[in-house]
Amino acid sequence: MSQQVATIDPTTPTVRDIDANTPLTSISGSEKAAIVLLALGQEHGRAVWAAFDDDEVRRISIAMSRLGKVSPEIVEQLLGQYIMELGKAGALVGNFENTERLLVQFLPEDRVNAIMEEIRGPAGRTMWEKLSNVQEDVLANYLKNEYPQTIAVVLSKIRAEHASRVLSILPEELALDVVARMLRMESIQKDILDKIEQTLRIEFMANLSQTRRRDAHELMADIFNNFDRQTESRFLTALEEDNREAADRIKQLMFTFDDLGRLDAAGMQTLMRSVDKDKLAIALKGASEKMRDFFMENMSQRAAKMLQEDMDVLGPVRLKDVDEAQGRMVNMAKDLAARGEIQISKKGGEDEMVY
């Protein structure tokens, strides 16, 4: 940013309004810096101000004092441009070490350790989802030293395809014992399940997180999943122009509302029983015609008619409310899939399953 604040014209008018039609090329470096810092605010901008020397502070302060109204469109463009330029310039190095070094400055050590363990560990919302993303040979190597009953519980909770690969790596005698126990297994008491989860978290995941580096595309897919639709579209479009391969990889890893269209009939019925009907109406209000039809086809005629009436009564709905309702449904689907209550086929193939 310091390279953008080299000059400021002393003849600049006292107040300069910058509307949406103002070309970015007509905004000086000092003005751009001033706008970005105003957008960051006191809390988030403090560290940036501290990095400037006295001359830079003076120049940006002068530019800031001469700014009038700045349109939201210009602010958004400048923030987006600044982020893209930082990425191209390679001026920042984001890695686990730098992240940890930054966090310890304002968070307690135990919380930093927990956060770093989480982001270094395998992706997933639950322990079982995380285990399903651990390489099968790594998981098998850990489980072979556990009691057969514990192994049976773990394999019964992760994806079937992943469990099969882990089972095939275990010593044959142990694997057959585990199979026999899984066949006899009844419902597992919650306290036993909680104890196994805690053991896995302390003894396995904590050690795994010290060595495993989470794929950057997985991390970005999680981040993009939490964007609202307009922000997601804007960043994906920009990324496609800059790095098509990375954009395609992120899109493959993302799980969106439209991906619910890959649920089978039984899975859709389970999901709809778990979703608040008011939220469903709001979510479908902003959905594509294809997704609306998909949901309607999995309902009785009476239920579909009532849902359509609910949608009609809603009238115009804020995009923010639609995004929130759809996000809740996506999270609900993930939770149900993690518990093995529904199955969602992968984008890349009909035979593979996620969660």
Rank of each mutant, 00 (worst) to 15 (best):
F224T: 03
N226G: 01
L170I: 07
I202M: 12
L174N: 03
M185L: 14
E197I: 15
K195A: 15
D215Q: 14
F235K: 04
A216H: 07
R201C: 02
S233H: 08
L239D: 01
I202F: 00
M220S: 08
L170K: 11
R212Q: 15
R214T: 05
K195Q: 15
L200G: 00
L200I: 10
D228M: 04
E186S: 13
A238I: 08
N243G: 08
A206G: 10
N243W: 07
M220V: 13
Q198M: 14
A206Y: 05
Q189D: 10
N226A: 11
D222H: 09
Q198F: 01
T237H: 09
D177E: 14
D191C: 00
P171E: 07
D194T: 08
E241F: 13
R234F: 06
D228T: 06
E241S: 12
L219T: 15
E240F: 11
R214Y: 01
K190V: 11
K190D: 09
R201Y: 04
K190C: 00
R234D: 08
A221S: 08
D177L: 04
R201S: 10
L239T: 02
T237A: 14
R213P: 01
L236V: 12
H217P: 01
R214P: 03
T231S: 15
E203Y: 02
M185N: 07
E232Q: 13
R212P: 00
D228V: 04
M205F: 11
Q189T: 06
E232L: 11
I188P: 05
A221C: 02
M182W: 09
M185I: 07
I188N: 05
I196Q: 06
A221D: 04
D242H: 01
R214H: 04
M182V: 08
A175S: 15
M185G: 08
V178Q: 10
T231F: 01
M205C: 06
R214L: 14
T199K: 12
H217A: 14
E197K: 11
I192T: 10
I192H: 06
M182P: 02
T237D: 14
R229W: 04
L208C: 01
E218P: 05
I223D: 13
R181N: 03
S209E: 06
N207P: 03
L176N: 10
D177F: 00
S187G: 00
A175L: 09
A175Y: 02
T211D: 12
Q210F: 09
A180W: 03
L183K: 10
E232F: 04
N207C: 02
A180H: 06
I192V: 11
M205H: 03
H217Q: 10
Q198T: 14
Q198I: 07
A238S: 07
L208K: 02
D228Y: 08
R234A: 14
N226D: 13
D242G: 00
F227L: 12
L239E: 02
Q210C: 04
A206I: 02
Q189S: 13
I202H: 03
T237N: 15
I223A: 11
L193Q: 12
L193I: 09
L170R: 09
L219V: 12
M182F: 08
R181Q: 07
S187C: 00
R234W: 05
D177W: 00
D191S: 14
I196G: 06
M182H: 02
D228H: 07
E241Q: 14
